[in-house]
Computed example of a mutant assay.
Amino acid sequence: MLYQPKNDDVLFTFFGVSKRIRQRSLSAEVRRKLVVKRKAQRLLQSFGLEVLVRDASDDRYPYADETQREKLRARRWCIYRYEGCHHDGLHVLRHRHLAFLDDDGVAWDFAECMDDSAPHKNPWRTEDDEKLMDQVAAARANAMTIWDALPEKNRAWFEEYLVLPYESVIDIDDKGDEWFEGPHIYVGEFDPVRGPFRDYRRVRLCTIGQWSARHAEANPEARVKKFPRVEALGP
Rank of each mutant, 00 (worst) to 15 (best):
A40N: 01
A40W: 02
Q41H: 13
Q41I: 07
Q41F: 02
Q45D: 14
Q45T: 15
S46V: 15
S46E: 13
F47Y: 09
G48D: 07
E50G: 11
L52I: 03
L52H: 01
V53D: 01
R54D: 05
D55L: 01
S57F: 11
D58G: 05
D59Y: 10
R60G: 11
P62V: 00
P62N: 11
Y63T: 15
E66F: 09
Q68P: 08
Q68E: 10
Q68K: 14
L72Y: 15
L72K: 14
L72A: 08
R75C: 03
C78W: 10
C78E: 11
C78A: 12
C78K: 15
Y80W: 08
Y82S: 07
Y82K: 06
E83T: 08
E83S: 14
G84R: 06
H86F: 15
H87P: 11
H87I: 14
H91T: 11
H91E: 12
V92H: 03
R94N: 13
R94V: 13
R94I: 15
R96I: 08
R96F: 11
L98K: 02
A99C: 07
D103K: 14
G105Q: 02
W108D: 01
W108F: 01
F110T: 02
F110G: 00
M114E: 14
M114V: 04
D115R: 01
D115F: 00
D116S: 10
R125W: 08
R125L: 10
R125M: 07
T126K: 00
E127S: 12
D129S: 01
D129A: 08
E130H: 12
L132T: 11
L132G: 08
M133T: 09
D134L: 10
A138G: 11
A139G: 04
R140K: 13
A141R: 15
M144S: 15
I146Y: 01
W147S: 01
D148F: 05
D148L: 13
A149Y: 05
A149R: 09
A149W: 04
A149V: 07
L150E: 05
P151D: 05
E152H: 12
K153C: 10
R155N: 05
R155M: 06
A156S: 05
A156L: 02
W157N: 09
Y161E: 03
Y161F: 13
L162K: 10
V163I: 14
V163Y: 06
Y166S: 03
E167D: 15
V169G: 02
I172H: 04
I172T: 02
D173H: 06
D174K: 06
K175C: 12
G176H: 04
E178T: 13
E178D: 15
E181C: 10
P183K: 05
H184A: 04
H184S: 02
